[in-house]
């Protein structure tokens, strides 16, 4: 059985109540269609420029607001939304991104090698590495995914004796005659073990030698399905 909460204003419809709750004045447009179609409807901010506009709350709806206040207080305590929002009409979901992010000074060479760094520093470093990778990908021109639509991807393990660390992994992207190479992102971003961080260093070493490798070229052959030769040797 429904127990409607007394609003103290028997004449107001659900639409009026909703509008009031959202901060619109009741003396505005009454027709719903007209309200939706009119893009110039006054916004709550335009309606009231005061920071804590208690005035928008109708004193006749005290019970409603009280209940909402209690609920929002509980939610604030539970989820730690930040500033306590006592007025439900002014409640805004707190932004997920930091408004003023701290500048992260990141040294490409030394910091990765520093194995004695404190764990907090390591976590910070990892997040910075992520950001740096993201930035580097964007710097290449179009974003990685946007650039490589329709490309097939192959993981290659390369041994190149020209580098100090001979062995490294790359992603090779191919679309018919076009080949592109990207560094394989090392999982240390999530795992962060010492060993994997070392591997990451190796990749850096390579880039230091040669810079980015994304290049396009034409290829004589094609990559069609092929028949297998017969003189096979046993499984490795």
């Amino acid at each position: 059985m429904l127990c409607p909460v007394s609003t103290g204003k028997s004449g107001s419809s659900w639409l009026d109540r909703l509008r009031t709750a959202k901060g619109f004045t009741e003396d505005g447009v009454t027709d719903l269609e007209e309200f939706i179609q009119n893009p110039n409807s006054p916004s709550p901010e335009m309606m009231d420029s005061k920071p804590n506009s208690v005035s928008v709350c109708d004193p006749s709806r005290n019970e409603d607001t009280q209940l909402l206040n209690i609920m929002s207080d509980v939610l604030n305590e539970l989820f730690n939304f930040g500033d306590k929002c006592s007025d439900s009409t002014k409640f805004k979901k707190s932004a997920r991104k930091q408004k003023n992010p701290r500048i992260c000074a990141f040294s490409n060479n030394g910091s990765r090698e520093n194995e004695n760094a404190a764990p907090e520093k390591a976590t910070l470093l990892r997040s910075c590495e992520k950001e740096l990778d993201k930035w580097e990908n964007e710097r290449e021109g179009v974003g990685r995914d946007g650039n490589l639509v329709g490309f097939s991807r192959t993981e290659v393990t390369v041994i190149d004796t020209s580098y100090e660390l001979w062995k490294f992994e790359k992603f090779l992207y191919r679309k018919k005659n076009v080949w592109k190479v990207r560094d394989k992102k090392v999982k240390s971003e999530t795992v962060g073990s010492k060993k994997k961080r070392k591997v990451s260093g190796g990749m850096e070493e390579e880039d230091r030698h040669g810079g980015k490798k994304s290049k396009v070229d034409t290829k004589e052959g094609n990559g069609e399905e092929c028949e297998l030769p017969l003189n096979e040797v046993s499984v490795w």
Partner: peptide, 13 residues
């Protein structure tokens, strides 16, 4: 030496 790249790559690449 360098090895590990697919045999379909053009030599120049």
């Amino acid at each position: 030496i360098v090895t590990g790249w697919p045999g379909g790559l053009p030599i120049s690449r």
